[in-house]
């Protein structure tokens, strides 16, 4: 649906140049929720703003559907923009217009007839759950409600693509989750392709199918959210994963387990989807002649499935334990020996 080939963005400021986006190649599939995560200044906004040419790429090509977004201009560009919705961190509503008139604005721009505008606005108000607030002004709304108006406005012209620039960064956790739920809801209902940028791993975890991690203008990691959560490769990705997995908690657990289990191997299992894990433990117990204790487990729910960690304690013959470990790895789960006979290994 969205394709970026060798996209570069260089800002010229006074005598220096800022290479904000470096050689980005990316394919975003139709109907998926694609997240781009990175710290401040990584180039996320620059990247997403090129998708509707709010910023022109210095180099490279961007296509959305069959349109080459990066090179069109004038009325063709305006037409293309009407088919791409966008929502913003600070909502960017017109204070001088009511909720209704804000939502009607893109329709006015597209030259839709008055009657049709009214019908469509009512429909959108219902879709985002703002019944009764039609005639309020933005200043009378909460942040979450403002973003709902932003979403309704972005969807007014039935876009195929929705761009979200830090759409939940100005909201509290509760409201963030409500807005994220709404995004998932419209993604399913309308088969809308969503590209979002954020600096919160929670957002990625909760709604994205795939994620790209950006650092200094480059995409350093790309993959399905589950994969990236399970085995982050880049240092920065590991940092982001820790945002939601909380490693300090793990350290406490390990210290505690080490004290209480002076013998055997303490193993950390990482697995995707809990169904995979249950038969594994059963088989281990049945097949291998060693003692298995499940000590601690934690599961994260992502949009496309669960990802978890499980601490188990193996006790028995060294040979048999090694066989069990091999079996686990063959099975597809990832096993890591953390403590052996009371000594920390990794």
């Amino acid at each position: 649906m969205i394709k970026l080939s060798n996209v570069n963005k260089i800002y010229k400021v006074k005598n220096s140049k800022i290479h904000a986006v470096k050689d980005v190649n990316l394919n975003i599939n139709e109907g998926e929720i694609f997240g781009i995560i990175g710290y401040s200044g990584a180039g996320k906004s620059s990247l997403i703003r090129m998708l509707n040419q709010l910023e022109k790429p210095t180099e490279g090509e961007i296509t959305i559907g069959s349109k080459i977004i990066s090179s069109i201009k004038g009325s063709e560009l305006r037409k293309a923009r009407q088919e791409i919705g966008m929502i913003f961190q600070h909502f960017n509503l017109l204070w001088s217009r009511t909720v209704k008139d804000n939502i009607a604005f893109p329709l006015e721009i597209a030259g839709v007839k008055k009657q049709e505008i009214n019908r469509r606005v009512d429909e959108l108000i219902k879709l985002v759950g703002l019944e009764g607030r039609e005639n309020s002004y933005p200043s009378q709304l909460s942040g979450g409600q403002k973003q709902r108006v932003g979403i309704a406005r972005a969807l007014a012209n039935n876009p195929r693509v929705l761009l979200c620039d830090e759409a939940t960064s100005a909201l509290d956790p509760e409201t963030t989750d409500q807005i994220l739920d709404l995004l998932v809801d419209i993604n399913k209902k309308l088969n809308l392709t969503i590209a979002l940028i954020t600096h919160e791993m929670h957002v990625i975890e909760k709604i994205c199918d795939r994620v790209a991690v950006m650092e200094n203008g480059e995409i350093v990691e790309l993959g399905s959210v589950l994969e990236v959560f399970k085995s982050p490769k880049a240092e920065i990705t590991k940092k982001f994963v820790r945002q939601v997995m909380d490693p300090s908690e793990n350290e406490n657990v390990i210290a505690h387990l080490k004290e209480n289990h002076p013998t055997g191997k303490l193993i950390k299992l990482k697995f995707l989807n809990e169904e995979v894990e249950k038969p594994l433990i059963t088989t281990l117990i049945r097949k291998f002649n060693c003692e298995i204790n499940i000590l601690h487990g934690k599961i994260s729910q992502t949009h496309i499935g669960s990802y978890g960690e499980l601490f188990i304690l193996l006790n028995g013959e060294e040979n048999e334990m090694q066989n069990a470990l091999n079996y686990i790895n063959e099975y597809g789960a990832e096993a890591e020996v953390v403590i052996q006979n009371g000594k920390t290994i990794s």
Binding site: L54, L77, K79, R81, Q82, M86, N92, L94, I109, R153
Partner: peptide
């Protein structure tokens, strides 16, 4: 941001 949002609407 408001001007930009309007540009983004085409």
């Amino acid at each position: 941001g408001v001007i930009e949002a309007t540009r983004a609407m085409g």
